[in-house]
Design a protein around this nucleic acid. Structure first.
Lengths: 239, 239
DNA sequence: GCGGTCCTTGACGGAATGTTGACGCGGGCT
DNA sequence: AGCCCGCGTCAACATTCCGTCAAGGACCGC
């Protein structure tokens, strides 16, 4: 985490990262090879716990989940994922009949493929799942500003392609500014939204954290081009 | 601190009213104390019925709702609230995995926190919920006047495409004039709205700041075409 | 425990801003 | 004509505000 992205972090297009969750090593390998051949950026997880971690760290655009994992019930994995993100989940199941299909969909899965399956069908369903999900999150959460790329949904900032690590407070401040980009944000409003309603005079915080953000994001921190100061009023993010 | 505090009161300017719905008296008390300490204006309701009443009467900016109330299912409370208002709802859930989370989100909740929770996280999620709800971006007009472009919402002025930097007082004065464009604005009214109720005779200020505005905004400051003087009365902004 | 990150807090020089007074100009009035 | 008042202009001063740095302490993961 501390260093750069782990391997295939930066790919050209969006919506092509898939997380394959399967404990069957042979099947997982086959899936990985096949998906990569079709342009997917594949991350693999052999267990439910690893899957939950991977959803958080790799931020896939779609999850291909095999039920019947060794460490925990597949439904719990679905619910664990649904607890905090709406990334589409396509379930892979061996059984052809049974309640598990209904249960999985009820728990928050988006689609269902039964083994054995045709690769074509699987690819189609993955594409469909991603496509359906896009309009939901497409409130244009990615803001480009010079060499900065700020992904509001994924809480990710990169400068010139390299990821930038931000502390929670740094991110909270940047987020408010970017969500109000092009518009002046009051000092009071910034303090209120980042630190809470009780803080309205601690302009110290703003000075400290704008300085830190500029040091991390601006090319020349002493001549900022994106995080601008309005003396006596507040700050403004400009693209 | 004369110019800053023009009447608006120190509190309650922004959404800081939270309704805590919890039947566990001890937890409710702890939450109330903690939230108050962080500047929130707390109302408490021990039952679902009381919560529905309180949403209507107290008009909170965010609802913190514990599922598992004695009198009615938590989902019904969510739906009851959602029936007539979009106030953000943050759900407190005991279970770590389970359908209730998903169901709550589906029913219209905005976020959830699982017990046990860190106070920091709860505070952050409350702020985030309020923040997301606020952007009811009422579209403010952009006033064009000659080569001037005045964006009331963005608090931005440009002349011939180039941004013009205004000090807080300069902007406050310009804003009053522009909002009353085409109309004569009393000296007393200007002083009152820009400097506060205590100022009604310091016409010096008006002379100084209208001069500064003209220098920044007018092509020929000695023959103003937009910021016009009504001798003995006040000033008027003309497009 | 220990090392790391993160948040908080204080202090300082320098810049931007608000405030105040003085002066000149011009028009209306006596 | 001469005076007075309101307005525009300017400059100097005091104050606030901002950027910066660094130290202390809380918190987390190992």
């Amino acid at each position: 985490m501390t260093g750069e992205s782990d391997g295939e972090g930066e790919q050209a297009a969006f919506g092509n990262r898939v997380l394959v969750v399967d404990d069957d090593a042979a099947l997982a390998r086959a899936l990985t090879i096949n998906l990569r051949a079709h342009g997917w950026d594949v991350t693999a997880a052999p267990t439910g716990a690893a899957a939950l971690d991977a959803v958080a760290s790799a931020r896939p655009d779609v999850v291909l989940l095999d039920l019947g994992l060794p460490d925990m019930p597949g439904l719990d994995v679905i619910e664990g994922i649904r607890g905090w993100t709406r990334v589409p989940i396509v379930v892979l199941s061996a059984r052809q009949l049974g309640d598990d299909k209904v249960d999985a969909l009820d728990a928050g899965a988006d689609d269902y493929v039964t083994k054995p399956f045709a690769m074509n069908e699987l690819l189609a369903r993955l594409r469909a799942a991603v496509r359906r999900a896009l309009p939901t999150q497409s409130e244009e959460p990615v803001v480009m500003a010079g060499e900065l790329r700020i992904d509001l949904a994924r809480r990710q900032v990169s400068r010139g392609g390299a990821d930038v690590r931000l502390s929670p407070t740094e991110w909270a401040l940047l987020e408010v500014l970017v969500r109000n980009r092009g518009r002046l944000v009051d000092r009071k409003q910034l303090l209120h939204e980042v630190w809470g309603p009780a803080y309205s005079t601690e302009t110290n915080y703003l000075r400290v954290y704008t300085a830190q953000l500029r040091r991390k994001l601006e090319k020349d921190a002493s001549h900022p081009r994106h995080i601008l100061t309005h003396p006596g009023a507040g700050y403004r993010f400009e693209e």
